[in-house]
């Protein structure tokens, strides 16, 4: 059993589906920050059986849209002085900007660089989003 000490100040991303932790770690760019970050995989969970967990020892801004897209069931716990001060539950965002790229080869956004492409949620079950330019469906 590996023990990671309790966080004094920072963020705990909890209830990540097993094996989704690394994807979230990469998408949030946690490999590029200087603060202490722990990614725990396949942690025993009463509720989920196995889960992943990320602890970040900083108050870095998290892009909750990215998290919502990858795993809308995760919980974000904000910790200060060793105490939980805020808990945020995520939902699949209705709209995301600048995160997804269109997979339609006939879309203009794949011919020239377009900033901040907006995608609208069209199917919550399949997590499919429609590109604002060509309306083709895509997902993360």
């Amino acid at each position: 059993m590996i023990n990671v000490s309790k966080l004094k100040k920072g963020i705990v991303i909890d209830h990540i589906k097993a094996n989704h932790g690394y994807k979230i770690f990469k998408q949030l760019g946690l490999d590029r920050i200087d603060d202490t970050v722990v990614l725990m995989r396949n942690v025993d969970s009463r509720k989920m059986g196995k889960k992943d967990l990320i602890k970040i020892e900083t108050d870095v801004h998290l892009n909750l849209d990215v998290l919502g897209l990858i795993d809308p069931d995760v919980t974000i716990n904000y910790v200060e002085n060793g105490e939980l001060v805020r808990k945020v539950r995520l939902e699949l965002p209705l709209e995301v900007t600048g995160i997804l790229t269109c997979r339609n080869p006939r879309c203009i956004t794949n011919q020239e660089h377009v900033e901040d492409i907006r995608f609208r949620l069209v199917d919550p079950e399949t997590k499919e989003y429609a590109c604002e330019y060509c309306e083709a469906r895509t997902h993360l």
């Binding site: 339609n104 006939r106 879309c107 203009i108 956004t109 794949n110 011919q111 020239e112 377009v114 590109c131 604002e132 330019y133 060509c134 309306e135 083709a136």
Partner: peptide, 10 residues
């Protein structure tokens, strides 16, 4: 008119 979809919006 453009062969790429979404060009007019862009």
């Amino acid at each position: 008119r453009h062969p790429k979809e979404g060009t007019a919006l862009l």
